[in-house]
């Protein structure tokens, strides 16, 4: 596959390491009242859709950016590639 890196342009997916569902960015609030349940879901539950999935790829053989790649799991069509850091910020993550 070719991943169109937001900074570097098209790169062979062989340069990347895959980590699956980008929901991992949404780490639960450790202060929450239902912290145990939330972390359980976070650590163990993933959707496995036949269709569009937002997933994390690490550009290990490149600029070391984590990317959020929106990919159709049926066709491998990639519709969007973002820097995970930007996505994390947009989800309200900070320090």
């Amino acid at each position: 596959m070719i991943i169109n890196h937001p900074l570097l342009g098209p790169r062979d997916s062989a340069e990347f390491v895959y980590m699956g569902d980008a929901r991992l960015i949404e780490r639960p609030d450790p202060e929450s009242d239902t912290v145990a349940e939330q972390f359980h879901d976070y650590a163990y539950l993933r959707d496995n859709p036949a269709g569009t999935l937002r997933e994390l790829w690490f550009h290990e053989g490149g600029d070391r950016s984590w990317l959020v790649v929106t990919r159709d799991t049926r066709t491998h069509e990639i519709s969007k590639v973002e820097l995970a850091r930007d996505v994390a910020r947009s989800k309200g993550r900070s320090k």
């Binding site: 994390l56 690490f58 290990e60 070391r64 930007d86 910020r89 993550r93 900070s94």
Partner: peptide, 13 residues
């Protein structure tokens, strides 16, 4: 890789 994940995805600021 894990450290970069924490840095970029969990603690972006």
């Amino acid at each position: 890789q894990h450290m970069e994940f924490v840095r970029q995805c969990l603690m972006p600021d």
